[in-house]
Amino acid sequence: MAITEQYTSSECLICERTNPPGAMLCSACGAPMSLIEEAAIQQRSPRIITILGESNVGKTVYLGFLLDMLSKRAGGFEAIPKGAYSVNLQQSVISHMNARQFPPKTPLEVDHWKWAYYQVRHYDAHADEWFDLLLPDMAGEALAQEIETPQTYKAITGLLAKSAGALVLIDAAVAASGSPHPDYFALKLMSYVDRQFATKRGGKARNPIAIVLCKADYCPECFDNPRAFAETNLNRLWNICQSRFANVEFFAASTVGSLGFAHDEDDNVVPVPLHAAPRGILEPFEWILDRIRAMPAK
């Protein structure tokens, strides 16, 4: 079905459910219908890059800095937000971090997630191609539920089914401390992604996947050699990536330059980002875009 027909029939871009005209959100998956409007204006379906990761791994902050850097034309990128709603996420992240606070947790409800629709171009000598990118900021708890019980969140299922690639965020600081938890979560997550991406039994998934080792400022050796860090500290993840994914790379990233802690009004210990020093934010995105460039648009 042509994208313009999809718009008139209000078919959701994510889960393909037909919605009544004038609907704001998809009745099945909760994705905003304004995405379809944007896609119709562009006369092409956007390529979706999904950002996956556990709760508190820093998906929102990573995505906020990524979008902000893109809109500042960092790293030879040019990015244009399509619609004011696309700017809300980066505005929220940057405003909070500038005030030395982390942004609020992404709500569990799909209709409260922030979505960013950007046109992005990397103006290097080899390419002058614009990408329509859809970058949703999903709640980590929702992803965890979806992994345990697939189809709980149709938005996630639909997103992954339509994704050209994925950025998988892993908490390197917790992994470096010796906890097996990030490795187990990553193993479950990659098993789930494998099921969504794999084309046939025995075949490796070809969609590019960038494994981003977050909070790497806590373990600087992660920046020295992300692959070696993953093989040592996230061995289960490393093994499934080698076995099941043909197009995977490891990166280290951090956004906070220094972290303190304080008690809040309810005497809970809360982290305080003393200042921001984003590092390794663009590299995984650039890598994944290069890989997607070689793939035909869906």
Partner: peptide, 19 residues
């Protein structure tokens, strides 16, 4: 504001200071 060990003051920003 505390951390797992003493926080010494640093001043002036660096090449990667975003704000």
């Amino acid at each position: 504001i505390v951390a797992e060990m003493d926080i010494k003051a640093t001043r002036g920003g660096a090449f990667d200071t975003y704000f």
